[in-house]
Design a protein around this nucleic acid. Structure first.
Lengths: 336, 336
DNA sequence: ACTATAAATGTAAGCGCTTACATAATTAAA
DNA sequence: TTTAATTATGTAAGCGCTTACATTTATAGT
């Protein structure tokens, strides 16, 4: 693999000049520019990004930490961030934290060790202190889906409570009073907030929260099934079931059907996130839209304008509002 | 950020010694080892991976190219590769190629410029020559889902034709004779092969292939819908529909239902891939299992044993056989 | 105690770039 | 022309590590 030195020799100029034409950040006469380009082409020269990073202390890459590499939600997030950044000529280094503090730290440290210019973090398990310590060490971070009071301007979050509220309220407006809830894992902020929204809507309607109608899942399909089964066994009077994400909603739907319930006639189900497959479920899932792709873009924008100064600073929206998407899985309560 | 130099000063030893304790690849006395560890801890020292790579010409990271960052299929693939490699202390740098030759090249070159020790490629658009040229330049690559005659030992593929064959044969065995097919994009190898398998099964049963029963989609849900609609309008005599992946199958199911067809009574549908959500569709999707996670692990294993010599070489399986997963969306043809 | 060996540590030359600074070439002004 | 101001190019010192080689120190054998 050819080095800059070989190029400089072939072009009959100095290292510095070659570097200048590579980076285009200093004036070089047209004539030598051509010579250098020719030499690079002939040698098939590709700059060694590692050496560039070491010398310049910039890597043109941004780190992205997600909880998982699979799943519609994270997929959309990675996708939107990557395409926006790539369009700007930046590269994304993705790692997974698996919602475990230790693994998240490891992943973040990997990104730092690779000298990413900025980190976009969907960090769920790591402590607030740790995140702040990163800033103290001059690591540029922006958080998606996590709200830290003192780091407001670096947080991009969804109003999860509002989302939970909207879902439950929609059920109430259809006449439901016995409403079950399958929550995400309580250690996750978003799960807590969505549940809080649920309770808020219940309270507003004068319905008291019944913990036997609430199941804690882990955001996976199978836990939607488990959740339904557990709830149904324990207290099968509910006519609506709110799930903290679409995956669990689809699992719950499947389980409900196995119990012979027809949706939405006998049981209404509402999801959360509005992932792509929600509209391909049967019945089509009524859910709360989570504009994760937009949030990802916003984070990418933030990096572009704050780190690379490459964007006529788009005003950054730090708090996104979810919307209810009405489809077929929520029905009016029949007075039977 | 502390450097190795500061550590060496704090510990009262030379740079080289610090480097030795970091890498653990040369003998250092217990006493100095301790001194160095203490100094590192006190300074909060983290090796600069960039500098390490430059000096050692190894990066301990492997590059992964996938077509998209979203979607169940790629999600499973990324996930299995990452977790296996991470367990071995290696890191994965993921990029997306978006099935476009130019973007795939760019992505691969990025990975090379980051000096990844090996590349795991799910390259769909880039030419065979290009891939071979990488090897000529001593880039260690292993291909997933792509079969190149002369690179057999670096290819890990699924027997897609067998998969297509199994799906169609299953329909035939249930008495279906009018079988429609929604294919993936023809420029993709796997799509072609699956279709070939379909044709093979047809031929074996003495059914002639009818191109008006075949629609070319792009592997997305919406194209499953479009496909069904187009086929149905044109020639609605088919009683079974084979789709080249589960996403399109779910789209087709939705569209079929909108036309009032009941599945599987009036129309049987079979998918391909057996992604997680296939079992949460209604009816549960009969499909062909694509062991992508295992294939990913196999690729990771290959890297571990061939590049890092870190694995008691697991025998590498280069050709995976798919299996039919029977669920509810395929039914026997009613003699009505 | 005295070598011969082995073990531990140090020295210094890179790895392939960027960039401040110095120098040379060009252009414009007088 | 000369000189000053610009513009283009070169020189060389790093960036933070690894590693061949040299040197020193410890261990064992006699």
């Amino acid at each position: 693999m050819a080095t800059i030195y070989e190029v400089s020799k072939a072009a009959g100029v100095s290292l510095a000049t070659v570097s200048r034409v590579i980076n285009g950040n200093a004036r070089v006469s047209e004539r030598t520019k051509e010579k250098v380009h020719k030499a690079m082409a002939e040698l098939g020269y590709k700059p060694n990004a590692i050496a560039q990073s070491l010398a310049s202390n910039r890597s043109n890459s941004v780190g992205l930490l997600v909880s998982e590499l699979h799943g519609s939600f994270f997929g959309d997030m990675m996708s939107s961030i990557e395409s926006m950044l790539r369009d700007a000529g930046k590269h994304v280094v993705i790692t997974a934290g698996h919602s475990e503090a230790e693994k998240e730290k490891q992943a973040i440290e990997f990104l730092i060790s690779r000298r990413c210019d900025a980190l976009i973090l969907n960090a769920e398990a790591v402590s607030e202190e740790y995140l702040k310590s990163l800033l103290d060490n001059n690591i540029e971070i922006i958080l998606i889906n996590r709200n830290i009071e003192s780091l407001q301007e670096r947080c991009i979050v969804l109003d999860n409570q509002l989302g939970g509220y909207l879902a439950t309220k929609a059920a109430i407006e259809q006449g439901h009073r016995n409403i079950a809830y399958i929550s995400g894992p309580h250690f996750k902020e978003d799960a807590q907030q969505r549940l809080a929204g649920h309770k808020q809507a219940l309270e507003e309607a004068g319905i008291s929260f019944d913990s036997s109608l609430c199941f804690e899942g882990g955001y996976h399909e199978s836990e939607g099934q488990d959740g339904f089964n557990a709830l149904f066994k324990q207290n099968n009077t509910f006519t609506a079931l709110i799930c903290a994400n679409d995956e669990m909603a689809s699992g719950a739907m499947t389980a409900a059907r196995e119990h012979g319930l027809s949706i939405p006639n006998e049981l209404s189900i509402i999801g959360f996130d509005n992932v792509l497959f929600a509209r391909y479920l049967y019945p089509k899932l009524t859910t709360v839209d989570n504009p994760i792709a937009k949030m990802g873009e916003m984070a990418a924008n933030w990096v572009l304008s704050n780190i690379y100064n490459t964007k006529t600073s788009t005003p950054i929206n730090h708090l996104f509002k979810p919307e209810l998407i009405i489809r077929d899985s929520l029905g009016a309560l029949h007075a039977d």
